[in-house]
């Protein structure tokens, strides 16, 4: 058995390559402030600012979950925590 080496691991997928594979498909985005956004990924840049289409935004407020639908947004990458490819139902 050889110790796994990150440097020579041929299966390494760069994180942004995964995001690149999501272009054209639905993506589920979890923001730093527990807000969640689902949409179709049309593009992104090195900061993971994202261009999304047919977007649903889920916010939890004191009055309960608020849902906002938007046609197209340019999302600031600064507040993103996690990206889930394909995921369409936040929470459950």
């Amino acid at each position: 058995m050889t110790a796994p080496s990150v440097a020579t691991n041929p299966s390494t997928l760069l994180p942004l390559e995964l995001v690149d594979k999501c272009i054209g498909s639905r993506i589920h985005i979890i923001m730093k402030n527990d807000k969640e956004i689902v949409g179709t990924l049309n593009g992104f840049d090195d900061f993971v600012n994202m261009l999304l289409e047919d977007v649903t935004e889920y916010e939890s407020t004191p009055e309960g979950r608020r849902i906002t639908k938007l046609d197209q947004i340019l999302l600031n990458g600064n507040n993103i925590t996690m990206l889930v490819p394909g995921g369409d139902l936040p929470g459950e």
Binding site: T68, L70, D71, I73, L75, N76, N78
Partner: peptide, 16 residues
């Protein structure tokens, strides 16, 4: 100032 921006959307809210 850009650091405060979450997103820019091209359409009016149509949701709840």
């Amino acid at each position: 100032r850009g650091n405060n921006v979450l997103y820019i959307s091209t359409q009016k809210r149509r949701g709840v």
